[in-house]
């Protein structure tokens, strides 16, 4: 490395700085590409819901939870995260089809991921968390609570049962549950 004069040092440093800028730019372009072409977005729908009355609302009432095929053949699964269990504890979804997962909590902060997939969101009291995804592999996947929510946090998890599309048979009311199969 030449370091005889200040000019030489400056020149080397500037070259290196240019390389650093190129690296950072490349990373940003990759992210922008993912956003424009694959529509990658974080789970960011600022949709408020009062945690104090969550169990009194229609959408997140106990009997409305789980998977349901709705208008436009949209598969939506609603799950409540509460201390220290998910309700329902198992949801069934078809593979290779866009599924919308909607989560809410009546108490404290929770979060979920589904092992082996990119499904991941925090569940914050006051908001509906929403994830759109396509499950490609069939089988039972783990959906644990991944944010500390109290002393029972370690035992809080649910199952996502991904079934082949032709075996996904919702009932006449459009609902599908793990028990029914």
């Amino acid at each position: 490395m030449r370091a005889d004069t200040e000019q030489e040092i400056l020149k080397t440093e500037l070259w290196w700085t240019a390389l650093v800028i190129a690296i950072v730019t490349a990373i940003m372009l990759a992210i922008i590409y993912a956003g424009v072409v694959h529509h990658i977005n974080p789970p960011s729908n600022i949709e408020t819901i009062d945690p104090k009355t969550l169990h009194l609302t229609g959408e997140f009432t106990e009997s409305n939870l789980g998977t349901r095929v709705e208008a436009g053949d949209q598969v939506t699964s609603r799950v409540v995260a509460t201390q220290f269990a998910f309700q329902p504890q198992c949801i069934v979804v078809p593979s290779n089809r866009t599924v919308t997962l909607r989560f809410a909590t009546p108490d404290v902060i929770h979060g979920i991921l589904v092992t082996g997939t990119n499904v991941n969101t925090m569940i914050i009291p006051g908001y509906v968390s929403q994830v759109h995804t396509v499950f490609t592999k069939t089988g039972d996947l783990l959906m644990p609570c991944h944010e500390f929510c109290g002393l029972g946090h370690s035992q809080m998890w649910a199952t996502v049962r991904v079934v082949p599309e032709d075996q996904f048979r919702p009932g006449p009311d459009g609902r599908a549950s793990c028990d029914a199969r």
Partner: peptide, 17 residues
């Protein structure tokens, strides 16, 4: 509210607390 990349689902379920 909602994501810029998808339509928002709706629900007409009745509360059964």
């Amino acid at each position: 509210p909602g994501s810029p990349a998808v339509k928002q689902p709706t629900s007409e379920a009745k509360a059964q607390p």
